[in-house]
Design a protein around this nucleic acid. Structure first.
Lengths: 117, 117
DNA sequence: GCTTGACTTAAACATATGTTGAACGCTCAG
DNA sequence: CTGAGCGTTCAACATATGTTTAAGTCAAGC
């Protein structure tokens, strides 16, 4: 059911209306249009935006997030969301692992940044 | 010893010369100047840039990275770098934990994004 | 000491992620 | 049915993260 206006989703997700339009333009959320050309979102939109904001904090771009969400079917089931969650977490952990690995290598090489042998 | 030119650091760190200047402007690395006003970096500069690139991937901004590096003394010892590494990893893990927590709450609430009760 | 390749700055350009403003249209409560 | 409060688009602005270009300077080997 697509019943929520831009302002409704903005209020529900804690971002500005302009950001809601931005996320729609970039495929993070989708909308239908009223006869008068206004956007109408379903309940999932605010949730997707909140997920997107947290995902951005771990280094994912809006494009990457939209691509991950693009895997969701029209009427996602809990299992579908579980898969999205797993993908997001795997990506975050992979990046953190790369950071740890790099820092660890750096230190175990006994060749730290500023140590000029 | 500040002996490396912009090009040297660019080659050693795998970024463009313009990026090396950018990172210096933003405090990720520091330089001294020759009599002819050219930048000279120490060996640590390339390493800092490589760390910065990996840290950017986990969502840290250049400003945040520069602030973390700002805690380093003039001649950092391994322990100083260990502290920087710990700070970076803690930040990455904190953000990943926030992501996991949000996704987990979402699912355990039985109220997934698209499930419109 | 000259030449050539690398360096300098400044500004413009490019992309990502939004916000703001102007000018105008839709909707819904009274 | 009307008007106040939303919504619409488009363009300009703002910040972050760089790259490119132009015009000019430096440095290092021959």
């Amino acid at each position: 059911m697509f019943t929520l206006s831009v302002g409704d989703v903005a209020a529900a997700s804690g971002v500005a209306s302009s950001a809601v339009r931005f996320y729609e333009q970039h495929g993070v959320i989708t909308a239908v249009r009223t006869a008068g050309d206004q956007r109408r979102f379903d309940e999932g939109a605010a949730c997707r935006i909140r997920v997107a904001k947290v995902a951005q904090r771990v280094g994912l771009t809006v494009r990457e997030i939209a691509e991950i969400f693009a895997g969701l079917p029209d009427d996602p089931q809990p299992a579908d969301w579980g898969q999205v969650a797993d993908t997001l977490i795997a990506e975050a952990e992979s990046r953190t692992a790369a950071l740890k690995s790099y820092l660890n290598d750096m230190q175990s090489a006994g060749r730290l940044c500023e140590i000029d042998l």
